[in-house]
Amino acid sequence: MVRFTKATTAWLLLTPMMTIIIGVVGYPLIKTVYYSFTAAHLASPATTDRWVGFKNYIKALGNSKFLDSIENTAYFVSVSVSAEIIIGVLVALLLNQAFKGRTLLRALLILPLALPTVVNAMMWRLIYGPDFGALNALLTQVGLLAEYQSWLGDPDLALWMVAIADIWKNFPLVALITLAALQTISKDLIEAATLDGANTWQRFWTVVFPAIVAPVSVALVLRTIEAFKVFDIIYVMTRGGPANSTKTVSFHVYQEAFAYMRIGSGASYALIVVLISALLIATYLWLIKKQGNTT
């Protein structure tokens, strides 16, 4: 039997993974760059990829609809991710207390996480229904709302309502991550702080906060990257309406490439999205690398 050197063995074991990454990610990414300089058309991408230089990019950056969709996405990301972090941390602090039913609640956190995204979107669309939706019924029956609202029909509200659906599904992730970090804090540390006369607030800042800040910031970036890709929930709930107020970048690229069939310019939009994502991903990698060094 042949004996390989350590390095050869290492590379051999990595080959299948690298093949898949190159085939399914590397090659397409390069091809997207190529497409973005062509006029490739969906009806026959292989024969229409005429070189057009920077035309697609110039058009993309001058397209106010695209810039609006970036703005919408940024808005959606900041609303949903910040709410997910705040609610998630609060829920984790709650679940770190001893009380009856804690295990049950923690199990319940799994429900939104495991619920398929499309079902989540559909469920909230039904709840938000302007005429027979549960939200309207609930709010008017308890007297919080005077008359029925068109939640997804109002451009000032629609993106918020979509964000709420996203928050509901994803805050449990932040909660579980934070909870795990909280459970690593030793009870002695808290008691010592209490004996030193620290109040709840001080205890939070001196003991709890340092323990959770790292995992929570990782969760923050992770959620930002995910939220930035948002597509399915928009596709099911609003399809970008009303008046494009919920149209996100992913939806814009989808429309350009698959409804208007312009793969070339669709690719240029996609690459602008990649640039933004790359920044976020780099932040993420930097964070976990830093953490890897300190722990």
């Binding site: 109002d154 451009p155 309406g241 009303p242 008046a243 494009n244 429309q255 409804a259 208007y260």
Partner: peptide
């Protein structure tokens, strides 16, 4: 041939007017 695109621009315009923006 570009009807889809013209239509979606018009849809947005109509909605903007209907929403009073």
């Amino acid at each position: 041939a570009s009807y889809q695109e013209m239509s979606s621009a018009l849809q947005v315009a109509i909605q903007e007017a209907l929403l009073g923006s």
